[in-house]
């Protein structure tokens, strides 16, 4: 349930070259960043910091952040090697964020929505009281304004340092989403690498639409825990987006480069706007209608990003 330390080495210092975690290719940093941290060689989607995610997802200048300053209390006096209270201060200094979730209102391809993005850089994107509270506040805001909700999950799970308080954030967030269900407010979850533990077992899995980026690790238990429990090697591609799609657990896999357009299209369906106009690849503020609707480009399973074969 709790977060573990996936891919710690992702915070690369200012080198010119970056090695792909997946295929080992050397990537030119500038090029890599321009591709929004997707490997040009194998298509591996690196974890994206929350602010970068917002920048590539919402219409420029449309994001209004909410509840920015909320910060955690150390209710347990938790101390493993560094006291939790100190760890929070250090992580804030390092990341400039007060916790692992950035929330606000924005427009995506012209459609107004409430957006929440998890920040993996902050203690592995772990969910504690601030993450839970912000999601609940965002849902309550959406309930009042009837804005559709888009949540980006990126987390190792619940934050152990907050003990059972973090566990109960699973209930807090699900309770808030249930109210949106009852009121007919649309919700979309985008699961990105990695989404595991208490985050997968709560808000990330109960939205109306479940979208995943290619190759993302998505699951309840971490692969290491499973391997230790069953004392067997795990099958290739296990718990990756493509595996979940095959098992019927998610609605769609959308590559990062198309995510903004796709979200605009789905939000249009959700809110009564024109999906065809919203899906036009180059964002023209949606007024005119395109004469030639864009070709439906990815319903061919062969074109889907391949699960890595043995």
């Amino acid at each position: 349930m709790a977060w573990t330390r996936f891919g710690k080495k992702k915070d690369m210092p200012g080198g010119l070259w970056i090695k792909c975690e997946s295929c080992g290719a050397m990537l030119f940093r500038k090029d890599f960043e321009q591709k929004n941290r997707v490997c040009g060689s194998c298509g591996y989607h690196f974890t994206l910091p929350a602010r970068e995610r917002i920048a590539i997802t919402v219409d420029p200048g449309s994001f209004d952040e909410l509840w920015q300053d909320l910060r955690a209390q150390d209710l347990l006096g938790f101390n493993d090697r560094v006291p939790y209270a100190e760890k929070l201060v250090q992580t804030k200094q390092k990341t400039g964020e007060s916790d692992a979730m950035v929330c606000g209102t924005a427009k995506v391809k012209g459609v107004a929505c409430a957006v929440g993005v998890m920040n993996f850089q902050f203690l592995g994107g772990s969910m504690g009281m601030v993450v839970g509270e912000k999601i609940a506040l965002l849902c309550e805001h959406a309930l009042k304004t009837r804005l559709p909700v888009v949540l980006f999950a990126c987390s190792g799970g619940a934050r152990m340092h907050e003990g059972a308080v973090s566990l109960m954030q699973m209930a807090k967030t699900c309770g808030a989403l249930q109210r949106l269900n009852a009121a007919g407010v649309p919700t979309i979850s985008v699961m990105t690498h990695p989404t595991t533990g208490g985050v997968t077992a709560s808000f990330a899995s109960v939205c109306d639409l479940l979208i995943a980026e290619p190759g993302a690790l998505i699951g309840f238990a971490g692969p290491r825990v499973i391997a230790t429990t069953i004392k067997k090697e795990l099958p290739k591609g296990f718990q990756r987006s493509e595996f979940l799609l095959e098992k019927g657990q998610i609605d769609r896999i959308v590559p990062r480069a198309q995510l903004r357009d796709e979200l605009g299209r789905m939000l249009a369906y959700a809110t009564g706007a024109d999906p065809v106009a919203a899906y036009k690849p180059q964002a023209v503020p949606a007024t005119g209608e395109s004469e030639t609707p864009p070709a439906p480009e990815d319903d061919n399973p062969k074109k889907k990003p391949k699960a890595k074969k043995a």
Binding site: M170, A171, C174, G175, L177, Q178, N181, T200, A201, S202, F203, A204, S205, V206, G219, F220, A221, I226, F238, Q239, K247, Q249
Partner: peptide
């Protein structure tokens, strides 16, 4: 995991 452990729990809580 194949049958959606996380989703079954999340759905129950909700």
């Amino acid at each position: 995991e194949e049958r959606g452990q996380a989703s079954a729990i999340a759905r129950n809580i909700l």
